[in-house]
Design a protein around this nucleic acid. Structure first.
Lengths: 104, 104
DNA sequence: TCGACAATTAGCTAATTGTCTATTTATGAG
DNA sequence: CTCATAAATAGACAATTAGCTAATTGTCGA
């Protein structure tokens, strides 16, 4: 949990996650979108991977990263539940969980 | 946003927030629940205050902290919305927003 | 095998973090 | 005014972080 929030505390890393919303992208493709060196981006990827927020697969020369939605979901909603919000699955229209007012 | 996630990345600070769920508590009362020095706790309070997650009021010799629910809510749900979750207000039974499957 | 390319690792610096003890500030009681 | 209590500030220190350049590893095409 701490490692997830730590990972989310950097704007570059949050933007990487957003870039992965619609599918996997290579390390180079991701790095190209930011104004920092490749090794620096590689370190950011490592933080995200260690937090479990992304997973990587090697394909030829490239490494592709993809979002681990469920980890993001569990951290965000798991914490929110502590404060009385409630995850709802029942009325979902898009397939992702819903967080609703809890009885907590 | 970064400062909120940074604040949430420490377990001590998350527990402080949880302790404030049911109402304000003094700095001493909060500090007493943890196994670190008062000044260390004071630093944690400052991080939470700078992130906007808590506010403080002085009452006599004591300082009382209370949760700023809306800031927590906006950070958590604002970020979640980026990933297609949707905040719902309509079916809430406890008065807190609901996060549901988005069309995003 | 050689060269180019993609990505990570190594090694470094500067800045930030979490922790401590000691000190200071502010309030209230006698 | 003086003392005790609550909390924050100051100053020190070890550990971590984000960033860089340079070097290394792995994979392909010629």
């Amino acid at each position: 949990m701490s490692s997830v929030f730590k990972a989310l505390s950097d704007p570059t890393r949050r933007r990487v996650l957003e870039m992965l919303r619609d599918g996997p992208k290579s390390a180079g493709e991701l790095a190209g979108a930011f104004d920092v060196s490749k090794p620096t981006m590689s370190a950011h990827f490592a933080v995200l991977r260690d937090a479990g927020l992304v997973a990587s697969e090697k394909d030829g020369k490239s490494v592709f990263y993809h979002l681990q939605m469920s980890v993001l979901e569990d951290a965000l909603f798991g914490f929110a539940q502590t404060f009385g919000w409630e995850r709802r699955e029942d009325i979902s229209t898009t397939g992702r969980p819903v967080l609703k007012e809890g009885k907590a």
